[in-house]
């Protein structure tokens, strides 16, 4: 099973060059049953990552391009009258797939945003009175462009909190970019990728994550981190219990990915920036959670690990 995980990583890394850490975190996010928010400029490989993940994990993939005129129905699906049967027939929207890529999520109106975010939270959608379960596993990768913010609706803190992790891919290293330029087109590679894990294997792995051992000493470390965000003056708001649960869950998944069945402080530190950066805000920063990098660095250098 472990080898399969590293095979997964290898396969995705073959497509998305030089983003080892981000790929690993993305897979961690899947294993921890969390959703992923990728913040980056266009063309950095967000879609490629999502595609590759879907392919490797054998998940059905749908992409929703968020625009300002997107309606909740466009995401969730609508009932259409069927002349032949004389009844309304529900046409499921793109959300009914196992891996959903919500591109440029901040371009849509808050109403449409919250349709997606509610579905993420509940694992089911209610349309016209009927509750319909979403597939299991269900994994959302949302992207947003933090730079060109004209005509966008910034996600509020409460909705940011629903994402287990926030990543940014960043420019590739020179060697990786050279390989990219010289190599085959990504668009050609993707359809050829083979599935490494099937659905059952994935849910088995997700169950295993819950059994990764967490010792008292490690919980103490997590508590120290959370406590620091709540008491230190530079933090505008402390981490919620949901955040500390997320941190522990992600650390477990990371430990599993590392091939261990127990968590060590280094696991927590590895996932910490991705898990908490979008939930923290500096007291002096009135914006939407940007510039929290210094806070995360502070947590990583000042809170005693032992």
């Amino acid at each position: 099973m472990r080898t399969k995980l590293s095979d997964c990583l290898q396969a995705v890394n073959d497509v998305l060059l030089g983003k080892d850490q981000q790929v690993r975190l993305a897979l961690t996010c899947v294993l921890a049953k969390g959703h992923l928010l990728i913040e980056d400029l266009p063309g950095m490989g967000k879609t490629t990552l999502s595609h590759a993940l879907a392919k490797v994990l054998g998940l059905g993939f749908q992409r929703i391009q968020f625009t300002s005129d997107l309606l909740p129905g466009d995401i969730l699906g609508t009932s259409v009258f069927d002349k032949n049967s004389g009844q309304f027939v529900f046409h499921p929207g793109p959300i009914f797939s196992e891996l959903v890529l919500a591109d440029e999520i901040n371009r849509a109106t808050p109403k449409s945003q919250s349709a997606l975010l509610e579905a993420m939270e509940e694992g089911q959608v209610t349309i016209e009175g009927a509750t319909r379960p979403l597939p299991d596993p269900f994994f959302v990768i949302a992207t947003q462009n933090p730079i060109s913010s004209g005509g966008t609706f910034i996600l509020p803190d409460s909705q940011l909190d629903r994402f287990l992790m926030r990543l940014s891919l960043g420019y590739p290293a020179k060697a990786a970019e050279r390989a990219l330029l010289l190599g085959e087109s990504r668009r050609d590679i993707l359809p050829r990728m083979s599935t490494v894990l099937d659905r059952e294997a994935l849910s088995l792995l997700q169950d295993q994550v819950a059994h990764v051992r967490v010792s008292d000493a490690l919980v103490d470390y997590v508590l120290r981190l959370v406590e620091a965000t709540r008491t230190q003056p530079q933090f505008a708001l402390g981490l919620s219990p949901r955040a500390s649960l997320a941190l522990l869950g992600a650390s477990r998944a990371w430990a599993l990915l590392e091939g261990r069945d127990y968590v060590i402080p280094e696991d927590v530190q590895a996932v910490l920036p991705a898990v908490v950066a979008h939930r923290l805000r500096e007291r002096t920063d009135q914006g939407a959670g940007n510039g929290s990098g210094a806070l995360v660095r502070w947590l990583l250098t000042e809170v005693p690990a032992i």
């Binding site: 060590i264 000042e302 809170v303 005693p304 032992i306």
Partner: peptide
């Protein structure tokens, strides 16, 4: 050891 350094690092 740095204050926040884990045992393995």
């Amino acid at each position: 050891r740095l204050p926040a350094e884990g045992p393995r690092t």
